[in-house]
Design a protein around this nucleic acid. Structure first.
Lengths: 219, 219
DNA sequence: CCAAAAGTGTTGGCATTACACCCATGG
DNA sequence: CCATGGGTGTAATGCCAACACTTTTGG
């Protein structure tokens, strides 16, 4: 496919936006994928993005396509980077702007639109992805690891994944899954308190064996 | 202007790449701008970018346009982010991928191509810029400040701006200009040594009054 | 021409903070 | 069995003072 503008010069055949949406499911970092109903590579899994409209901001496109293809709505998207290699898509010259988001797993409805099989996939066990989407997901994971390293960012953005109130143990498991490395419990606890962004509810909860954990809430 | 692809759908009228090139001139952080010879906003200063060819990687475009418009060549470009608001360019739907680079001031030839007036402009005293280029430059400065905060990045990438050998005083002035904040001389010196990436040449150099400074080289 | 002053590079020390690691305790 | 809190040693960092070496100034 080709495209030309009214001045006769070559133009991209379109512009796409691809959201890389992460969540924590069963303690594992997962990414949201949808099966392609269209060519190329129909039937293969890919990021739930699509074409940007001519009077639309790309971030709106990412959010809209996400809703249409998976049912996930109202997320905060951070721009990741743009992939514009002319050979990245067999259809022609088609750049894509990738975005990143972090949502709660239940944001994905049980009944997903169409036959897309929109679903969560652990990042350490991804299926084969269409186009260069595997690269995009990798970059997203890398960015996520970096963001989570900032404790304040973690409390403000990532901790919203947990249902309130939550224990610090839950928060730590979330941190470790998102960061990709284990941390010392005492240090983690100290850092969390240090942010001043958590509030002790006073109550406790017992999950499984061992001493019950204090319950916290974000302020 | 409009553009459509062979499937009949609307497409961007093109894709541009804009390099944000920084240097240190007279101790001040400067950005490379060129006067526009084309519409829109002819005669106004803007980033020295241009249209991406249909079989070209955008980073190559940024490098090529930089060379054509300013004479600056062979730089390492880091992708900044993409600006794709449909209203950002009066010509039509025209996304741009912004890149960032850091070069020595003498990389800009004395005789610049055409009547472009390619020249360095202190970031704290920029002229009015075309389109949304002021925003792009701001984002570039922000990213630069963050990058420089990493001492190893600074030594490896930024310190290449100084002619070798250099004194630690020079390095510190570079750091402060790029970082946008002053630092303690003793700490800066300790950090520089700590990287293990600097080599003491043994000789000294006296610039103005005061004790002469030791001369260093990157390894 | 010499001595003092001023200016800058260099080094070290000290206090504070950040952080990793371990252990005792409580539910 | 595990959450919680405390404690300790080490590294990183910020701050400050002393000293070294040079140019400049003034008699």
């Amino acid at each position: 496919m080709k495209a030309t503008n009214t001045a006769g010069y070559e133009a991209p055949i379109g512009l796409t936006a691809d959201p890389v949406v992460f969540t924590l499911l069963d303690g594992r970092l997962c990414v949201l994928l949808a099966r392609r109903l269209e060519e190329p590579q129909r039937g293969m899994f890919s990021l739930p993005g699509g074409f940007v409209g001519a009077s639309e901001a790309p971030s709106e496109t990412a959010e809209r396509k996400l809703r249409e293809k998976t049912g996930v709505g109202s997320v905060h998207l951070e721009q990741l980077r743009t992939y514009a290699d002319p050979l990245r898509d067999p259809r022609g010259w088609l750049p894509t702007i990738a975005y990143m988001a972090l949502v709660r797993p239940e944001t994905l409805p049980e009944v997903t639109p169409a036959e897309r099989e929109a679903s969560w996939h652990p990042v350490d066990r991804l299926p084969e992805l269409a186009l260069d989407h595997a690269t995009i997901v990798d970059d997203g994971i890398w960015r996520l690891h970096a963001r989570v390293g900032d404790k304040v960012w973690f409390v403000r953005k990532a901790l919203a994944l947990l249902p309130e109130p939550f224990t610090l143990r839950q928060a730590q498991q979330l941190y470790e899954a998102l960061r990709g490395e284990v941390v010392d419990a005492a240090n983690f606890r100290r850092d969390m308190r240090g942010t001043g962004l958590l509030e002790d509810t006073g109550s406790q909860r017992s999950e499984g064996p061992g001493r019950p954990g204090r319950l916290y809430r974000r302020v």
